[in-house]
């Protein structure tokens, strides 16, 4: 039986073509997606959104660049250390809940307060934000790492 991967032309897929339209558009769209990702990230907790969705969107913005260019160019544009991103994310999302023991409350108990800023007005501040930042970084880093591993050569 002939291999499905071979039939799909797997060995040839890796050579990328230079599509000027895609490359130009993705540079612009990248910023829109990243902004939307951060919007979703900050909207979380009280309204739909949060670290996971935001992280996925941020990763997908980078993946768009990865599709338009190749890995080397992407690394030149944005130097990413997957290991550091994932580890920092995991560390944040584990350390923040653990710190709540210092305040005599159980694991994962969060504190929140409201902050009065001059221009922006009242802003809710929540310790879950730090936890969510950890989720954001982990999800973004892991997704990027997976796509890069599948896309690229052995690493």
């Amino acid at each position: 039986m002939k291999s499905t991967l071979k039939k799909a032309g797997y060995s040839r897929v890796q050579k990328q073509m230079h599509d000027v339209f895609l490359q130009f558009t993705s540079k612009v769209v990248f910023f829109i997606i990243i902004m939307f990702a951060f919007n979703l990230f900050f909207a979380g907790h009280y309204t739909p959104g949060g670290g996971f969705v935001g992280g996925l969107l941020a990763a997908s913005a980078l993946i768009l660049l990865l599709i338009a260019y190749d890995r080397k160019t992407l690394f030149k544009m944005i130097p990413i250390d997957y290991r550091l991103i994932i580890t920092t994310g995991l560390f944040l999302s584990l350390a923040v809940p653990t710190l709540s023991f210092l305040f005599g409350t159980p694991f994962l108990t969060h504190q929140h307060t409201y902050l009065q800023l001059p221009v922006l007005g009242e802003i809710p501040l929540h310790s879950a934000l730090l936890f969510d930042l950890g989720v954001f970084l982990t999800v973004a880093g892991t997704t990027l790492l997976m796509i890069a591993l599948i896309e690229g050569e052995e690493s």
């Binding site: 409350t105 159980p106 694991f107 994962l108 108990t109 969060h110």
Partner: peptide, 9 residues
């Protein structure tokens, strides 16, 4: 006896 903790209170 059995130890219990409730996550997130």
């Amino acid at each position: 006896g059995t130890m219990v903790t409730f996550i997130g209170d």
